[in-house]
Design a binder for these strands. Structure first.
Lengths: 112, 112
DNA sequence: TTGAAAAGCAACCAGGAGGTTGCGTATATG
DNA sequence: CATATACGCAACCTCCTGGTTGCTTTTCAA
């Protein structure tokens, strides 16, 4: 209920991965990786879908805290929220560690 | 159409992330991180859902190549397919690199 | 002040996700 | 052979997703 950077719940990480689990959203995310903030109509350019469609995708990523929203004048600008992606990375890193260890144990068991 | 380790399409990675985008599936995956293969009924233990439910989740992860399936006698055993998780890690790493660079450029622009 | 740009809100739709139950089928085992 | 185990298949249900369109509201600028 109070998801900060240190508290990484399974449900929280799952929500982040779900937010990344769409090709359109990954494309949007790639464009946000320049570190700057972009308006919705700006982000709609190049995608084959409508502005409302893009807006929905951005909302999904915002709920998962992958991006952040900011109202500037008459436009809503979205920016990458890097900490959340970092969480996802850390999660995968830990998983990799685990099976790396398992593999190592398996190897030493077989070869020695 | 021929997704090997080097060819990482956006749609492919999106499918992997989508496969990770569910709390039940993440729990199953965590148990597969011991590097060994487990049967479906074995994996059903501890989850609050039915065997068919678990089977569906495993099928989703298998389609995304996150896990692999193998028939052994009368049971179907699933195991982690580590390469695919590695792909997802690499994707996030590249994204992080990008915005790290962007942040660096921004800093040097502001402070010098 | 009048108009255009940017976005929000709401309704709608097709399809898929997540889950269940019931029943059939292969495979060990007594 | 008989029976229990492990699983697959199929139908079904509810709810969310991804996408659209239409209309309203806010904000900037001529």
């Amino acid at each position: 209920m109070s998801p900060n950077q240190t508290d990484v719940t399974t449900a929280g990480v799952a929500q982040v991965f779900a937010a990344l689990g769409d090709a359109n959203r990954l494309s949007l995310l790639a464009r946000l990786c320049d570190g700057e903030s972009h308006s919705i109509t700006q982000l709609t350019q190049g995608t084959g879908i409508s502005r409302q469609g893009v807006s929905k995708h951005l909302t999904v990523m915002e709920r998962a805290r992958v991006v952040s929203k900011e109202r500037v004048g008459r436009e809503t600008r979205y920016a990458l929220q890097p900490g959340t992606l970092q969480q996802a990375r850390t999660y995968l890193d830990r998983a990799s560690e685990q099976w790396d260890d398992a593999l190592l144990r398996l190897r030493s068991f077989l070869e020695i």
